[in-house]
């Protein structure tokens, strides 16, 4: 147990606690990201460099922005919700946490653990080779799922053509986009940004 573990563990835990207990949604988001950063540091301390960097790239770079858009496009960050005050939510939360902890602990304690020899350093090359040979089917299934989600999101964001045909067009300025087919979804996105 060295200093790095203690500091990173405290950062992760404090971030998680703040993310659950603060009132302002944007503050919660920032604390959650601090927690993820601590988690990435823990991976780094376990010399799983690739996992740590992917954690930063995906969670701090992409998921945080997704949550930002979700917060700002819905009710706004400054809403004062009731928070975790009801006994129901407390018991449900603790129950879920215990369930996850039990499941993970069970796998760690009783599951088959691959022999770890010091020579096998999990480099990116090794990870890539495993992903492309032994685990290619789960990878493809994941890709299919993500593609499906992407297409679904595009369909949800597409404006209803029949409804748009009955309405007179007002949004389009006369000179802009002359001769260019307007892209469904994209204009809205640009407008928000």
């Amino acid at each position: 147990m060295n200093a790095a573990w203690v500091i990173l563990g405290l950062l992760t835990l404090a971030g998680a606690v703040c993310a659950m207990s603060l009132r302002n949604l944007v503050h919660c988001l920032l604390c959650l990201m601090a927690s993820f950063l601590g988690l990435a540091g823990l991976y780094l301390a376990l010399s799983a460099t690739f996992v740590a960097l992917t954690q930063v790239l995906v969670y701090l770079g992409a998921v945080s922005i997704l949550i930002v858009f979700a917060i700002l496009l819905t009710r706004g960050g400054a809403t004062l919700g009731s928070g975790l005050t009801g006994t129901m939510s407390w018991t449900a939360g603790i129950g879920t946490a215990l369930l996850v902890l039990g499941g993970l602990a069970g796998v760690v304690i009783w599951g088959p653990i691959a022999p770890t020899d010091a020579a096998s350093d999990p480099t990116v090359r090794a990870i890539g080779e495993r992903l492309m040979t032994a685990y290619v089917l789960p990878l493809e299934a994941m890709a299919l799922l993500l593609t499906g989600a992407l297409i679904g999101a595009v369909i949800l964001a597409m404006p209803d053509r029949e409804a748009a045909a009955t309405r007179p067009e007002v949004r389009e300025p006369p000179m802009a986009n002359a001769g260019k087919p307007s892209v469904p979804g994209k204009d809205e996105r640009g407008g928000e940004a």
Binding site: L30, M33, T49, F50, L53, T54, V56, L57, L60, G61, A62, S64, I65, V68, T123, V124
Partner: peptide, 16 residues
């Protein structure tokens, strides 16, 4: 060993 990935990972932090 994963320098390029490191570069893009830390770059992602500036958006937040």
């Amino acid at each position: 060993d994963v320098g390029v990935l490191f570069f893009f990972a830390v770059g992602a932090g500036s958006e937040l």
